[in-house]
Design a protein around this nucleic acid. Structure first.
Lengths: 109, 109
DNA sequence: TAAGTAACTTACTTTATGTAACTAACTTTA
DNA sequence: TAAAGTTAGTTACATAAAGTAAGTTACTTA
């Protein structure tokens, strides 16, 4: 018998972080504020999906959107404290990947 | 200018871990070997998707499948060393979620 | 006036996931 | 011996999520 039950907070955290692109967007933003077009280029995410994810992340308080009314307009996305608080998780994933992920074809996907 | 580039190992790790259900399946297995039906019940994942994920995880070397030819047959899935090596990441997510995830409606999804 | 630019949005296609019924292989019950 | 139960799947079909590529808005520069 196994009485282990999933912690609802953990489950929720995973449901947020494991949405496609979310973790990469946050990781990307740890290097500093970024523009929309930069993110689509560097991540390879479609504009449509990036729009959706950034809106969700803004609503959840991970990201802020700043408008600079220059010409052409510059809009920058950056991490809030809550967004930054994910850094230790990113670091662990980085650490793990450098030890366990091979880049040759045997493990490719 | 921003010259930050995504680390390909990190990207790959994230692409594995952020596939829907994968992190929860691994987390669930950290509590010990589990059967197919137990996992569908506890996680709420469909049988079809669980089959797919377990096959992927087996191929990638995170999980092993053991058959006990009892009656009715018992099949148990458990983590390999590689699967277990993800524990520190899970712990970080757990730690983060206990601090930053609220369970009330304001943060609901 | 035409073309350029950034940040989206929209219509449509493809892929991923869910649902629920079905199968295989074996055992127990009536 | 035929019917029903059990686990671990599989299959066909439906819905949801993500990608693609063209279009939109609001400005500016050539």
């Amino acid at each position: 018998m196994n009485n282990f039950e999933l912690c609802p907070r953990f489950e929720k955290a995973v449901s947020i972080l494991s949405q496609r692109w979310t973790a990469l967007i946050i990781y990307q933003l740890t290097s500093g504020p970024q523009r929309f077009c930069t993110m689509t280029e560097k991540l390879g995410v479609s504009g449509k999906t990036l729009t959706e994810r950034l809106k969700e992340l803004e609503q959840r308080g991970f990201v802020v959107r700043d408008v600079y009314p220059e010409t052409p307009v510059r809009i920058e996305y950056s991490l809030t404290d809550k967004g930054m608080s994910l850094t230790p998780i990113m670091k662990e994933i980085e650490k793990w990947s450098s030890k366990w992920i091979a880049l040759d074809s045997t493990d490719a996907k």
